[in-house]
């Protein structure tokens, strides 16, 4: 039987992360450059929306990242709650701010696209409101985590919030089909996208760039969480040791 604990222990994670990290950085740089080149120069203006369509190349990938990040947050939270796996907590904690940033970018770029196309920065319709709720779920998750003196209780409470909040993900996805909204329905779906290749290329490149960025920053933040864990236990050990004197022998 495969032992899940050894399959994903922190030491092994650190080894794998160290090997993956430089590739993630390189992929982010290359894909971001290629994506922006196609998004800003090498793609045509839309026949209706003109050059404003270029906002799509950051807005749609940001929205996809916001949703897939939240899905991953819910999965990691479930694993953390059921199996109490250390690395699942670390993943969830490390990725929540990244997901929050992408959700924020989705809202801001959407707003900047909405003004020239719909004539308004914001409407309280199903799609926009449910994405705003997603942003608040991320913020709530982060706030709840630090609301307890005991970090384990904070993680547990925020994991439950992440799981309950997952109900919002299908609501966002199908909001454009279920309710009347200014927001257009999905153009990229199973059975072939309803979008020309010249616009699909920058969209896919920017999505891959955002994913590579996500992996880069996730690995950085996971490493930070693991170092903080070591720091907590080192401080506990130091406090228990007899000869520990907090301010003596401290390097200048």
């Amino acid at each position: 039987m495969i032992d899940l604990a050894t399959f994903a222990n922190p030491a092994r994670f650190s080894r794998i992360a160290g090997r993956v990290f430089p590739w993630a950085v390189g992929a982010t740089a290359v894909l971001m450059a290629a994506g922006l080149y196609f998004a800003l120069f090498a793609s045509p203006p839309d026949y209706q929306q003109g050059e404003s369509v270029r906002i799509m190349y950051v807005h749609v990938p940001a929205a996809w990242m916001a949703l897939s990040s939240y899905t991953l947050l819910a999965v990691a939270s479930a694993v953390a709650l059921v199996w109490r796996h250390l690395l699942a907590d670390v993943v969830a904690r490390a990725m929540a701010p990244i997901g929050a940033c992408f959700t924020f970018l989705c809202l801001v770029t959407g707003s900047l696209w909405g003004k020239p196309m719909w004539g308004t920065f914001w409407v309280w319709d199903a799609r926009l409101t449910s994405v705003l709720v997603l942003f608040f779920l991320y913020l709530g998750y982060l706030a709840l985590q630090n609301a307890f003196d005991d970090p384990a209780r904070g993680l547990r409470a925020s994991a439950i919030l992440a799981l309950v909040g997952f109900v919002n993900v299908p609501i966002i996805k199908f909001s454009v089909d279920w309710w009347n909204t200014l927001h257009q329905p999905a153009s990229i779906k199973l059975g072939g996208p309803a979008i020309d290749a010249s616009m699909l290329v920058p969209l896919i490149l920017m999505t891959l760039a955002f994913e590579a960025y996500f992996v880069t920053v996730l690995l950085l933040r996971m490493r930070t969480e693991l170092v903080r864990g070591k720091l907590r236990s080192a401080r506990l050990r130091a406090a228990e040791a007899d000869e520990y004197l907090p301010n003596i022998g401290k390097p200048a």
Binding site: L40, G50, E51, S52, R54, I55, V58, L112, W113
Partner: peptide, 13 residues
């Protein structure tokens, strides 16, 4: 194409 006020702030954000 006249959308500079919306495209560039979006990219900057």
């Amino acid at each position: 194409g006249g959308y500079a006020l919306f495209v560039w702030p979006a990219m900057a954000m």
